[in-house]
Design a protein around this nucleic acid. Structure first.
Length: 274
DNA sequence: CACTCTACCTGTGCGC
DNA sequence: TGCGCACAGGTAGAGT
């Protein structure tokens, strides 16, 4: 389940010097199924990326932005390939000889015997082409990994919502999903049903600090490791998916409730409701 | 306007 | 063994 840290790991791996996407040209593209491309037809999509060159990769929240330079010099206006992995999307470079996987949705054959592969069993993930990332980011809040305490405090003051749905709202801050929302609330010792308007200044500060540090630690660990369910990296979760198990701090059993249709895990002792 | 709810998907794991 | 079902979740868009 790719959230901000997992998406950031994708950016870093695609930028790594050993096999970087940057500077490589699309020789040929393949689309499997009708769902992956949004906003234009598969034919239009393939025509536009054909011969285009990857010039940079950026991330905002869970969105990936690939800046591309068209191959034809006469129409050399850069554009952006935008990809959202949603629930089950994976994006990686492979040797061009490697067969497409069962759930490959998009494959871009690159120069130097490499291919960029987008796999997605549940077909929730999307790829589209835009003139500028702002077309996508205008509806998103600041990136959760870098949001300042000032901006966080200002945005929180404009809200009267429960903390769990608020953290999941990408227009509040971008990049937090269900796993890290629970982890962040545990780290900040705040109950998920706490209303944002009831937070004392020191609690707002604590919440912001938890957003930053939990995500930084998860990025450092290359993503989450949820025992037996999901493994992207080595970030060990404290509460997500651990209902009934002992809190790592106080040994109380972790509870699971439903908040805004989402499974929500927390420690009733460490995260007392105000 | 601000917020809440549902549809979209399919692999997994459970009970019978 | 195999069937049916609930469950997981990010976002757009519909609903309140």
């Amino acid at each position: 389940m790719p959230e901000l840290p997992e998406v950031e790991s994708v950016v870093r791996s695609l930028c790594s010097s050993s096999s970087s996407l940057i500077g490589r040209r699309v020789e040929q593209g393949f689309i499997y199924g009708s769902r992956v491309v949004s906003g234009c037809s598969a034919e239009e999509f393939l025509q536009q990326v054909q011969h285009a060159c990857f010039t940079s990769i950026e991330r905002h929240g869970k969105y990936l932005f690939f800046e591309m330079q068209p191959g034809c010099a006469t129409t050399a206006v850069p554009f952006f390939l935008v990809i959202h992995l949603r629930m089950t999307g994976r994006l990686y470079l492979v040797p061009v000889a490697e067969r497409s996987a069962k759930y490959t949705r998009l494959s871009l054959i690159l120069s130097e015997q490499l291919a960029l592969r987008f796999d997605d069993p549940r077909t929730f993930g999307r790829a589209w082409l835009v003139e500028h990332p702002s077309i996508v980011t205008s509806t998103l809040g600041p990136d959760a990994l870098t949001v300042t305490v000032q901006e966080f405090t200002t945005r929180l003051a404009g809200s009267k919502r429960q903390l769990k749905p608020l953290l999941l709202d990408q227009s509040f801050v971008a990049g937090i999903g269900n796993i890290y929302a629970d982890e962040i609330l545990f780290r900040s010792r705040l109950h998920p049903l706490t209303n944002s308007r009831n937070l004392a200044p020191n609690e707002v500060h604590r919440l912001h600090q938890a957003v930053r540090t939990v995500l930084e630690e998860a990025v450092e660990a290359h993503g989450a490791n949820i025992d037996g369910v999901f493994k992207a990296g080595n970030f060990i979760v404290s509460v997500y998916g651990r209902s009934g198990k002992k809190c790592r701090i106080c040994e109380s059993p972790i509870l699971r409730i439903t908040v805004g249709q989402r499974g929500t895990h927390f420690c009733p002792e460490c995260q007392r409701r105000k």
